[in-house]
Nucleic acid binder design. Structure first.
Lengths: 151, 151
DNA sequence: CCGATATCAGTGTTACTGACATTG
DNA sequence: CCAATGTCAGTACCACTGATATCG
């Protein structure tokens, strides 16, 4: 975007939390994408691998629920992971509808590699905030998110 | 999305600010879109009308810079506004490259109407936060945003 | 028959890229 | 010649919808 904002945004926008959030999210996404690119990964790789590592093998539907990714998109995401040998998809012998997705060692290595790069991106994103302020922001955001997903 | 998260998201995700932000932004966008829909408006209507009202007539390039909308998208956005009689596009007599966009009275009425609906959406989004916490969140976000846009 | 699952086809929004002609 | 502007064509990511087949 060539929108190098040497001007100030309208006060109405700056006073609208949803605008601040979506705008900040754009920068967050760009920085995260750059981090993913350095290891040839995608956004959903990180999410799915994190879920598989933390909770163990899971069905695609459960992965979608965990990571807030739509079922239809989980299909493509798992395809990508399987093609790159980061996860394995096998039918569930106990339930003919399900697939069981399992993370591989390569997937676990990839997850750690992505995490390092992503941490650098977080640092760039939150550069102007102190550690305490970063924590505060994360807490507030998590509460808003919990309310939207659970409440 | 049918991802009714009765499960908890992976700790790695919840510890990643960019994930929290983009996730929250998804909900913010949805709530804002619903608000826009009630008055038949779009996201960029609000942004452009707000800039036109606050700073007066402007070129498309300047509107893009103010609102952080790409030039190529401003074209379509202004088309939409002009078709609905909310703004007028005239060539700049002083600079043959530029158009001058001016808000109409209908546009100003529309802006106020959108603002009301949008305020309700903010309330739904930030429901779990106290007024002080909402202010805190806005401040933190604005600082992050300023750092990303100004450098 | 109902509900969940995996899959696929398709839509809509929006950020972004690259190209182009025109003008300063 | 270079920079800015408006415009257009096209890409990519992702949320979301709806349909379908299968299975419990």
């Amino acid at each position: 975007m060539d929108t190098t904002a040497e001007h100030r945004a309208p006060a109405r926008l700056r006073a609208t939390p949803s605008w601040l959030i979506t705008q900040t999210a754009t920068h967050a996404s760009r920085l995260a994408s750059e981090a993913f690119d350095t290891v040839g990964a995608r956004r959903y790789h990180y999410a799915l691998l994190a879920a598989l590592e933390e909770f163990g093998p899971a069905s695609q539907a459960e992965l979608g629920r965990r990571c807030a990714i739509d079922r239809s998109y989980v299909v493509e995401a798992v395809n990508g992971l399987a093609e790159n040998g980061m996860a394995v998809r096998t039918p569930d012998p106990a339930d003919g509808r399900r697939n069981i997705i399992t993370i591989t060692e390569a997937g676990e290595r990839e997850l750690r590699k992505i995490s390092e790069r992503l941490a650098e991106a977080q640092d760039k994103l939150l550069a102007p905030l102190s550690p305490a302020e970063r924590e505060q922001l994360a807490q507030l955001m998590a509460r808003v998110l919990d309310h939207q997903t659970r409440g």
